[in-house]
Structures are given as structure tokens and as C-alpha cells.
Nucleic acid binder design. Sequence first.
DNA 1: ACGGTAGGTGTACGCCGTACACCTGTCAAG
DNA 2: CTTGACAGGTGTACGGCGTACACCTACCGT
Lengths: 238, 238
Amino acid sequence: MAEQVGTLRRAPLSRDRILRAAVALADGAGIGSLSMRNLAQDLGVVPMALYKHVANKDELLDGMIDVVVGEIDPLVPDADWKHALRERILSARQALRRHPWAPLAIESRSMATPAILAYLDSMVGRLRAGGFSADLAHHVMHAMGSRILGFSQELFDPSRQAGRSGTAEPDPPAALPPEIAARFPHLAEIATAASHDDASVVGPGCDDQFEFEFALDLLLDGIERLHRRGWTSRHVPR
Amino acid sequence: MAEQVGTLRRAPLSRDRILRAAVALADGAGIGSLSMRNLAQDLGVVPMALYKHVANKDELLDGMIDVVVGEIDPLVPDADWKHALRERILSARQALRRHPWAPLAIESRSMATPAILAYLDSMVGRLRAGGFSADLAHHVMHAMGSRILGFSQELFDPSRQAGRSGTAEPDPPAALPPEIAARFPHLAEIATAASHDDASVVGPGCDDQFEFEFALDLLLDGIERLHRRGWTSRHVPR
DNA sequence: ACGGTAGGTGTACGCCGTACACCTGTCAAG
DNA sequence: CTTGACAGGTGTACGGCGTACACCTACCGT
């Protein structure tokens, strides 16, 4: 029985276990708390042990991103391109919202990971299958930008704070502090004026999901119009 | 004459001199090389001297962002809202392209700086003056997202590499490496298929400026349509 | 002449990523 | 049963980071 003690005391390390622990750490304590030392401690191991499974911290981050991307639902089959893309992008958004550190991590890495490339590739494939020219598909992918992965990098985004817990407390009204409101009257006006008033559950604050879908549909509708009229980049776009 | 030696040897430090040196360092050596120690060395001073003028590194970054934002042209007067916004956003884009580190720096800070708030406020003001409801203006600002500051955070962006010089070499064709092209056929297809073929100066590569304006006009046209028909968020947006 | 103060200096601390040598348990080949 | 290779966890150490804190020094208004 003694021979089992070693294996019972601690599950053996593996790349997968490391990645999942890293994601959990970043989710719970913020990406700022993700250090090789902290991560090793969570795993009950010495920091250098990690390097037997991941090459370095950058590769660790890439692996974490792939974990998140792996949570995105597959394309729904048997739907027109617009509906298929819309649903999948909203699924991506849900995945990324579970991991608030992910958008910045994705944008910091200079090259996309294979998992992201596969995701993008499938989206392009769906466009092509829907009759888009390679030319228009190209521009569409650019126009969507990071929105195609479900995030849009708002200019103020309190959830991006370093040490925040991942649990989504509804973030109280958060109107502008008065001295700021006084200096920037137009911002103050629109900060509260977003009237999602038919569903006042949301209160006077700002409904992120609504804003995301607003922009997404603005783009999809515009793209649909271009597609219908057989747009190509030979025409000037306006 | 000896009493002048001290002042001749080195210009006195100031917050402004520090910020400009920091921007120059980040432009030239990449944001990854911007450390308090490197910056102090460039200024011929000991690292801790900087802290008499900036509170900490985060505040230094905020100051650098404000330098960049200060380079954006003011709103052109006497133009319809669409033209005014479009021109100013393209001006912002030019400013940010001179400082490739700026987009990521802006998105990393959790709260916007006063200069950014002033910029956004003026944009909202222009929309309101153009007859937009506070409600629609709110959604428009969200829909534009970081694009209103002239960048859209592409998913691959080689210029975001850490140690790159800021001088814009045209970035040679940069088609996908063959083993990647094989795994992601749709990406490979659209990577080269963007036919800006009427002006083949650009070659087969991808014209960032064109892509940016494509997405910008897609959004502006959609926004114009909503504005014309008096859209409010009481209606479901699709 | 002098005391306060603004601004540059030196030292030190705790954190980071990770190179490198080392140890240990497992397992296949002889 | 011995042996030796090897996968995987350990310990130590290095250079770099941001910055707290005590200090020094030159200037300026009284």
C-alpha cells in the first residue's frame, strides 16, 4: 500500500492540469496574479517543475487562450450564414465573459494561436459557403475585427481591473463621478440616457449585451446589404 | 561661468521632458523596453529621479497616452456630423499609427485618461449637435468602440511585436507560411484574395487603411440609416 | 545669514521569468 | 537481477523589474 502514497498525495503534473489551474487562477485572482510562482504553489509544486510541460510563460498564455477558445460552441449547421455567424459570435462572447482576462491576453500575443486560426478559418468557410467572394470575406473579417471573437474592447471596462474576482457582480450603477460629469457634459448625458426602458430590470446602467448585439447587427446588416448587391472592392465602398 | 556648467550639462528634468522621452523610447525600442531604469538612463538621470515628476509607472503610461491623444486634430467645423466624425477618426488613426504601442497601452488601462474623456466628449457633442438623441448617441459610441480612437485591434498585427522599430517599413507580402496555409485553407484563400487590384501599388498584401475605412464606413452608413429613421432603443434593433 | 523646500542620489527589498545542475523513481534491455 | 537511460520534480542563482525610504544639495525668500 505504501507504494500508492506518492500517487495519492498529488496528481501528477501534466500540461493539461497546468493550463486548467492557470485559467482558474487568472479567473479567480486576476491575470496580474498569474505568475509561474503562484501557479506552481497552487499546484503544490516548485516553479521550475512547470517548465517540464510548458516552454515558457508566453506559451502558457497561448495554451490558456486555447482553453477558452475551446469553450466556444461549434457552428450551428443548416442555418443561413448570417444566423450561423451571429449565434457563434454570441457563443464566443459568453465564453470570453467567463474569462475576463482573455481579451487582453489575446490582443497582447502578436500571432494568433492555432485554435484561434481554426476558429477564424471555420468562420471564413461559412461565409464562402454562403456565397461570399474571397474578396468580400476578407474585408468582412477585418471589419468584424476582435468582435468576431466576441469582444469589442470597450474604452472603459471596469471588469478589466487587475485584481478582480471573475464572479460577475452586476457592477452597481457606476454613473460618472460628479467632478468628471461636470467637465464632460455630453458624456454625462449619454451615460444615463441609454433607455433600455422597456426592460427596466437593467436599471439606468448600461447593458453590455445589448450594446454588443447593437454593434454586431449594425455590421451584419451592412454586410448583408453589400453581399446582396454583389459588392467587390473594385467599387469605392461608399 | 562655472555656475552655468550644471545647467548646461543637462536640461532640468520635467514631467513634460520625461513624457516625451518615454514616448520616443517606446516608439523606437518598443513598449517592452520601456522601464523606469531605461528611461532614466536615456535622460541621464538615476531611476528614482523620475518619481519626483510622475507618481509611478501607470501614471507615466497615462501621460504618454495623453501625449498621443494630443496629436489628434480638432473637429473640423462646418461639416455634417458624418463627415466631421469620419475625418477626425482618420486623424486619430494617423496619430496612433505613429505610436504602435498606444492601442494596447490604452486598452490595458482600466480607466480612460482625462484627455481621452475630452476627446470622447467632443465626439458625443458633435453627434448631439447633429440631431442624435442621447440614447442613439450612447449606442453609437459603444458600436464604434476603440475604432473611434482610430484603431480596431486586428487579431494578427505584426506591428504590435515587442521590439519593433516604429518606422513603417511596408511589411513584405507576409502570406501565411505554407504549413499553416495547408491547415487553414479558407484563411489562405482570403489572405491573398483581397483584390485592391485597381491600385496594384499595394500588391497582393493587405491594405490596412482600406480595411479600416471599409469597416468605418460600414458602421457610419448603418448609423446614418438609423438616425434618418429616428431609431430608438425601444424598438428591437433588427 | 539661514531655514525650508524642490529635486536628484544611493541603497535596498521583494517580486518576476528562467538557466542550469541535480536528484529520484520507473522501466526496458541485457 | 542488474543496469543504465530517461522523464519529471527540486534547489540555487542571476539579472531585471517597480519603488520605498533616507539622504544630500543647491537655491530662494525672509
